[in-house]
Structures are given as C-alpha cells and as structure tokens.
Design a protein around this nucleic acid. Structure first.
Lengths: 122, 122
DNA sequence: ACTATAATTCGCCAAATAACGAATTGTCAA
DNA sequence: TTGACAATTCGTTATTTGGCGAATTATAGT
C-alpha cells in the first residue's frame, strides 16, 4: 500500500506524464497522438506511458499497429482512482492543459496515419 | 498550477516523506521526534521537511530550540489540501503507517530532551 | 516477399535526488 | 560565558531519472 502510493506519486511527479493524463481525460489516444502532443521522442513517450501503466493509472488496448491508452477505470485500485481524481481536480483549468486540449483538437482532427507520418519526418 | 502540482507530486514521491506526513496527521511534531521515527540523519530529515514545506504541504512553528511541523491547514492552497486528503485516504490503515503510529506513541511518551539526547549519542 | 510504420527496448549521457558527515547558527542552561 | 543541543546548510557520493538515437518487433499495405 505504501509502496503502491509511492510509485503512483512518482508517476505523477513529471510534467509530461501529468499532461498525458489530462489529455487522456478526453478519451483514449494512441501513442503517436501523444507523441504529437508532447513533442517528445516516441521512445521517451513510450517510457512515460510505461511508468503510468506500471503505477496502474492507465491501461492499454492494441488495435493493429496502434496501441491506445486510456485512464484506468473502475477496475483500477482505489489509490490509483483517487490519485487520478486528485490530479484532474488540481489541474482543471490549468493553462498548459487548456493549450494541450486545443492541440488535441487539431491532432485528432488529422487522420492517425497522416499524423504519424508527419512525426516520422521530423 | 501545473508546476505546483508537479512539485507537490514530487514531494509525495518518497517513502520517508509520506511517513512523515502520516505521522503529522496525529498533530505537530518537532524535528527530533521525526528523526527518531524515521531513523535518518537529522540533516536528511531537515531536507525532507524542507521539500514538504516548499510544496506547501506542511508548515512550521519555532519554539525555543525546537521547530515544530504540522500539516498545512485551511490556509494551504487547494491543490495541497487535496493532495493531503488523497495521501491520508490512500495510506489509512497501511501497515508501516500503523507501525509508525506505535513508535510515535513511545516517542512522544519520552520527553523531548531525553529523546534528542538519545538520538545524539547514536 | 518487401517496404513502411507504430511501438518498444536498449544503451548512453546529463541532470536531479537521497543519503551522510562536517561545519554553522541559534537558543537554552550551567 | 561557556557548553550542550536542536536544526539547518553545505559539500560529497551513489543512485535514479529523463532525454535521445539506434536497433528490434509486429503489423499493414504494395
């Protein structure tokens, strides 16, 4: 319980990971979309998502080439659920989160394929 | 807001600091009592408390030679208050916390002077 | 089959962090 | 005033962490 709480807090103690959580509040996203949002290397984003997953804060679903992540639901542990509630309350209305939501609108508007190709070219 | 949340999460992402927070749930404690509880060097404990203080999770009061820390009250920022609520909910009933509460009973039973002398001898 | 691409893993480097002891500061009591 | 002690600050060291690119795996399309 203590160890779980520590690992959850560790998972939440990074700006990129908090931004990812807030982005996922709007529904599931594939890795390449989160890469586009955060502007980090795919390998880095994958690692971040791995940390969040390990802490039980998000879950994933594979569909073809893509892996979709979403916030952990009712199946998550109580500490994880409460942590998510805290973060979403604490960051509701945050300016960088708001900016991210706008970026997301653009990103999800573009087709996944096109987005990922764009990312690859960079 | 984002930065505050990150620093709060960072402050919570250490076992010793979580134990300190849970110990302070029972009321204020002086540094030497927390040193006795955690079994860490005074300089280390001071640093931990500094991190928690910086994050707005605890506040301090100086009384003579001693500095007492307590959980941040209603004056604390909403994110800090909510974070404290999360931690206390997540760790309620945790075994190491329960153990610490027993240790605390013993520690607060001993006079402060005697405790600190005992620690100094180590 | 072959190529392209989404995602992960791995190895590396730089920066941040936790721990300690030593030195310092401030306060009380002989 | 001198000594004892609570607490903090500072310097050092070992570990962890975040970032990237290269290599790898898996899947879809040609």
């Amino acid at each position: 319980m203590m160890n779980e709480t520590v690992s959850i807090a560790k998972a939440l103690s990074d700006k990129a990971r908090l931004r990812a959580i807030m982005a996922l509040s709007g529904g599931e996203l594939c890795v390449c979309q989160i890469v586009g949002l955060l502007g980090l290397a795919p390998s880095t984003v994958s690692r971040h998502l791995g940390v969040l997953h390990q802490a039980g804060l998000i879950s994933s679903r594979k569909d073809g080439r893509w892996v979709y992540f979403r916030l952990a639901g009712p199946d998550a542990s109580p500490p994880a659920r409460k942590a998510l509630r805290w973060v979403r309350e604490a960051l509701a209305g945050d300016s960088s989160v708001t900016k991210d939501l706008l970026s997301l609108k653009r990103i999800t508007g573009v087709s996944k394929e096109e987005l990922c190709r764009t990312q690859a070219k960079k």
